[in-house]
């Protein structure tokens, strides 16, 4: 009975996480279009439903019934595999992410996370890196100039920004003395990490923008010069897979920033349940991502490379050195 209960709790938690993540891109696309519209003094989607609320559903329906086209000269196996490789890792990563502290339901303590790994941070950065492989294969398998150029840019960009991102979190690991995300959040019950690690946060935030391939670092899919980048040849549901994966990566980056630098579910001043505070913080960071998209121009490719290697990498190394001297 005990094990049965434990297993059913686990299955329910997994179902909730997967269901929420699958449904999340729908409100996010609506939010993004509305934010874009209001920044540009337009109204945005207004026709389908109240203030265009049902627009994402209409779009999803359109994507599902659209023709699924595969170019004749494409590598069929890789072309069909690539969207799946891009979609699965962002979901897998959420296994290691805590959404709140332990709560008591019907007299039994239930943790608001699937697992608490002692290598969670490394696991997340590693598995999130597999997603890139899907994008690269997509561009290569399409057998198209624009898609291939998009892929090449993805490769170079992701390698350049994964290193500063990995270094930026070392300061946080030093402060908590652990790589488990639950420990990291609990270490921030007083002051948040951003107070001690402003440089680490800056580096992590810029690298997260690049990892999520958002403006100002969306060169792999720069519509001005590459058509649509690596997914130029994709249509219908396969295209939707890339969209979903991109949105989930953005959510993941926001969640990670909240956990690593903004104290997770801790907020000493506001008397709200921890998970709600967590959710509000994540929403705010997602909004910042979208706000940036319509505020900043896109960087040139060589600027992107020099920012990554000549600014972020030295900054993150200096941050490790200084954190090591003061905190360790």
């Amino acid at each position: 009975m005990e094990t049965l209960f434990a297993i059913s709790v686990m299955v329910i938690k997994m179902a909730v996480v997967i269901g929420v993540l699958l449904a999340l891109p729908l409100p996010l696309t609506w939010m993004e279009r509305k934010i874009a519209a209001h920044i540009q003094q337009r109204l945005g989607p207004m026709r389908v439903g109240w203030h265009g609320l049902l627009q994402p559903l209409a779009d999803a329906l359109k994507l599902m019934v659209k023709e699924d086209h595969i170019p004749e000269k494409a590598d069929r196996l890789l072309f069909t595999m690539a969207p799946i490789i891009a979609l699965v890792p962002p979901f897998v990563v959420f296994v290691a992410i805590p959404f709140g502290d332990t709560v008591t339901i019907f007299g039994t303590p239930v943790t608001l996370y699937l697992t608490d790994m002692n290598v969670a941070l490394l696991f997340i950065l590693g598995v999130a890196g597999i997603e890139v492989v899907g994008l690269i294969l997509a561009g290569w398998a399409s057998n198209s100039k624009y898609a291939l150029l998009g892929s090449l840019r993805t490769c170079a960009q992701l390698i350049s920004y994964e290193i500063p991102m990995g270094f930026a979190v070392i300061g946080v690991i030093m402060l908590a003395g652990s790589m488990s995300l639950v420990d990291i959040v609990n270490a921030q019950s007083g002051w948040w990490n951003i107070v001690y690690q402003p440089v680490g946060f800056f580096v992590f935030f810029v690298a997260a923008l690049a990892e999520a391939q958002r403006i100002p670092f969306d060169l792999p899919e720069a519509e001005g010069d590459l058509g649509a980048g690596f997914h130029t040849e994709y249509s219908g549901m396969r295209f939707a897979f890339f969209m979903i994966s991109e949105y989930i990566i953005m959510v993941l980056m926001s969640v990670l920033m909240v956990i690593l630098f903004f104290g997770g579910w801790h907020a000493s001043l506001i008397p709200l349940p921890g998970s709600l505070i967590f959710l509000l913080k994540v929403c705010f960071l997602i909004w910042v991502f979208m706000w940036f998209r319509f505020t900043f121009p896109r960087y040139r490719y060589d600027q992107l490379m020099s920012i990554g290697w000549k600014v972020l990498l030295p900054l993150s190394l200096a941050n490790i050195l200084i954190s090591g001297m003061f905190f360790a």
Partner: peptide, 24 residues
């Protein structure tokens, strides 16, 4: 698990992406 995570982070996430970059 530490070695496993490191293996994925370094080899799959970085080295193989570089290899693909060269192949392309």
């Amino acid at each position: 698990p530490f070695l496993a995570a490191l293996q994925i982070f370094v080899y799959v996430g970085a080295v193989m992406v570089l290899v693909l970059f060269v192949i392309m």
